[in-house]
């Protein structure tokens, strides 16, 4: 059952992640196998502590597994050095967080331009790319506003613009609608859906919101670090 374009983008095999909390080992992921196709829109659901965010962090190279392999576009990222992993992340991954995580002292445009500083683009080209990303999320007219001058929904749209500014392979969204009202959440979900359908991006999203999950093509349900259910949604 293909929910992407049929080509494999990421492959996780036997991935285990153990956190040490209060002197005890907490096995958040236990031998997880997961394939993600290019152009897929994946929703990860499950109770708190089930390992949803850990999957995103591992896929995005923010965290490393204790066991197993993660291959993205032919690169085994678990073997990369810290610097190489950072460089890989800059090229291939765009993150969207529940708390938006914009730099408060920078304007919307400057926040979106931030990851472009890691590219060889000229200043003018960086600005052009950042403006285009803001246009995609419908906030070009707010590009000179600082995060405090924006609503929560607008902040999250700026965060999405930042995530796509470098044209990454994957967009990883960790509860992107968690802090938003329904209308703002719908606007954000609409943008994520368009990223997949119109721009060919691959999106993996952690959510507790069933309405958000319905926007995805594929739904994964996790329980205690184990994938217990996979299925397609009406979006597939």
């Amino acid at each position: 059952m293909a929910t992407g374009d049929g080509t494999l983008l990421a492959r996780m095999r036997g991935v285990t992640r153990v956190y040490r909390r209060g002197g005890q080992d907490l096995r958040v992921l236990d031998g997880l196998d997961l394939d993600v196709e290019r152009g897929d829109f994946l929703a990860l659901m499950g109770p708190s502590g089930s390992g949803k965010s850990t999957i995103l962090n591992l896929l995005g190279g923010l965290d490393r597994p204790d066991a197993g392999t993660i291959d993205v576009e032919g690169t085994e990222i678990t073997g990369l050095s810290s610097d190489a992993l950072a460089a890989w992340r800059a090229r291939h991954v765009g993150f969207v967080f529940q708390a938006f995580n914009l730099i408060p002292v920078l304007t919307a445009l400057e926040n979106v331009e931030l990851p472009l500083l890691l590219t060889p683009l000229s200043r003018a080209k960086r600005r052009e790319h950042a403006q285009y990303a803001l246009e995609i999320v419908g906030l070009k007219d707010r590009m000179d506003h600082r995060p405090k001058q924006l609503s929560g929904g607008q902040e999250q749209r700026v965060a999405i613009a930042r995530a796509i500014a470098t044209d990454p392979t994957m967009v990883l969204a960790d509860e992107p609608t968690g802090d938003l009202d329904r209308a703002s959440a719908d606007a954000v979900l609409d943008i994520l859906t368009r990223l997949v359908s119109e721009h060919g991006k691959t999106v993996a999203m952690v959510t507790h919101d069933p309405a958000a999950a319905k926007c995805a093509k594929r739904l994964l349900h996790l329980e205690k670090g184990v994938l217990v259910e996979q299925g397609t949604t009406h979006g597939a």
Binding site: S82, A86, A90, L102
Partner: peptide
């Protein structure tokens, strides 16, 4: 945030 965006440690 900077590290998540790909800036070095």
């Amino acid at each position: 945030i900077l590290k998540a965006l790909g800036f070095r440690d």
